[in-house]
Nucleic acid binder design. Structure first.
Lengths: 225, 225
DNA sequence: GTCTATATCATGATAGAC
DNA sequence: GTCTATCATGATATAGAC
C-alpha cells in the first residue's frame, strides 16, 4: 500500500491525535481540518464522513493487533508440534497482545479501545460489523485452538466463555468504573502506575479460572437429587 | 416524591422511549418535545440541558436496580444469621438483579445498559461520576459481603475480581460482539431466545470460576524454583 | 484525480416577550 | 411556565478551480 496523498495522511494523523485526546464527539471536522491545514470538505472527499474516518483508524489499529495475535498463536503451535496448547498460553496470545497495544501510549493505544467501545454502543453504527469481518479469521483460529486444547468442554461453552473473557478484558482495560470499585476506606489504593503494571497479572488468572470453571447444569436436569 | 408538572413527566416519558429506540444522539430535543406535545424550550427549562435529562433517566433506573440489590443481599444476610454468605449467592444478588432488569423489555431495560455504557465512554461526561455516587453504598455493601465470605483472599484481589466480573457481565448483557464470536461453521447457533434464557446460567459459573481462581504470583517472587 | 470555496441544513442552547 | 425568535456550531452537498 502506498502513501496516498499528503492531505489524506495529514487528516488521518490529526484525527488520531484529536480523537485520542478529546474523544470522537468533541473533535469536530472543523478542528481536524483546520489543525491539519486542509480544507473543511477534505474529510468528506477522502473518507465520505467523519464516521468513515473513524472506521479507517480503527481498521488500521485492528490490523496490526490481529497480525500480532496470529503471529503469537503461530509461534505457540510451532513449538507444540501438533499437540494441544495450554489454555493459558492461548489466552496470553490473544489478550496479552491487546495489553501490549494498550500500553503503547505513543500509538494511542487506549484511544483505540475507547473508540472501539464507542463503536459497539452506537446503535446505528455499522462500525462493529466492519470490525467483525476484519476479526473473523483471528477469532476462528483462536476458537479452534481452544477447542483442541479443551476437548472435554462442549464447544458452545467455550465460545460463550471466550465472549465473557473479552468482556472482562475490555472493561478492565478501558478502566470503566475503576474509581467506583476502589473508593472505600478498607482498601488502600495502589498507585495508578502500579495497578497498571499488575492488571495483566491479575486479569489472566481470573480469565483462566472462568474458562475452566465447572460447567453449568443442564436445563433439563434428570439427575436424582 | 410528587408528580412534578405534567410537562415534566411527558418529557421524561418521551425521552425514555426515544432514547431506547433510537439512542441518545439520534434523538433530538426537537423530536422529544414535538412527540411529547410540549414546547421546544421546555427541556431546557425543566432539566437544563439534554444531557441533564439523560442523567435524570439513568438515576431513576439505577435507584430501582440498587434497591433490589440491597434487598436481595439483606434477605441473604437475614437467613445466614451472621455467618458468611456463599460467594455464588452474593453474585446472584448483585448480577441476577441486573439480568432481571435487562429482561424487563417493557421498562426499557436494555436501553438503560446502553446509555450507561455510553455515559462511561464519553470523556467529558460527568454522568459516570454521578452514577458512582449513587452506586457507592451498594458496591461497598457487596464488597464487604465478599470479604467476609472469602477471608483467605486478599481484599485487593477481591475488588479487582469484582471489577472483572462487572466487565464480563456488562459485555455479555449488552450483546456486544456476539455475532462475531458465534459466526462459524463449527457451532450451530442457538436461537436468540434460547441463548437469552441460558445467558445467566452460563455466565454465573464463569464469574464464580474467575472469582475463586488461584491467586496470581507475587511480583517479587522469592520462592525457590 | 485532487482539492477548495461556498451554500445549506439540523441541532442544542438561550434570550426575552407574554 | 410557556412560547417565539434567533444564534453558534457541526455535518454535508455541490460547483468548480487546479
Amino acid at each position: 500500500m502506498y502513501q496516498k496523498t499528503e492531505t489524506y495522511q495529514k487528516i488521518l494523523n490529526e484525527a488520531e491525535k484529536l480523537f485520542a485526546t478529546r474523544g470522537y464527539d468533541a473533535s469536530s471536522i472543523r478542528d481536524i481540518t483546520t489543525n491539519a491545514g486542509v480544507n473543511l470538505a477534505a474529510i468528506h472527499y477522502h473518507f465520505g464522513s467523519k464516521e468513515k474516518l473513524l472506521e479507517k483508524l480503527i481498521k488500521k489499529k485492528l490490523k496490526l493487533l490481529n497480525k500480532q495475535r496470529l503471529s503469537a498463536l503461530s509461534n505457540l503451535e510451532k513449538k507444540a508440534c501438533g499437540k494441544p496448547l495450554r489454555p493459558s498460553d492461548i489466552l496470553d496470545a490473544f489478550f496479552g497482545t491487546l495489553f501490549d497495544m494498550f500500553d503503547d501510549k505513543n500509538n494511542g493505544g487506549d484511544m483505540f479501545l475507547r473508540l472501539l467501545g464507542r463503536a459497539s454502543l452506537e446503535q446505528n453504527s455499522n462500525l462493529w460489523s466492519i470490525v467483525n469481518l476484519e476479526d473473523n479469521n483471528v477469532i476462528t483460529k483462536f476458537k479452534s485452538a481452544l477447542f483442541y486444547s479443551l476437548p472435554d468442554v462442549p464447544k458452545i461453552e467455550i465460545v460463550w466463555r471466550f465472549h465473557f473473557m473479552i468482556g472482562a478484558t475490555s472493561h478492565a482495560i478501558s478502566g470503566t468504573g475503576i474509581s467506583k470499585i476502589f473508593n472505600t476506606a478498607e482498601i488502600k489504593p495502589e498507585s495508578k502506575t502500579t495497578s497498571r503494571l499488575l492488571l495483566k497479572k491479575r486479569l489472566m488468572p481470573f480469565l483462566l479460572g472462568g474458562l475452566r470453571s465447572p460447567l453449568p447444569m443442564k436445563t433439563n436436569n434428570n439427575l436424582k437429587p
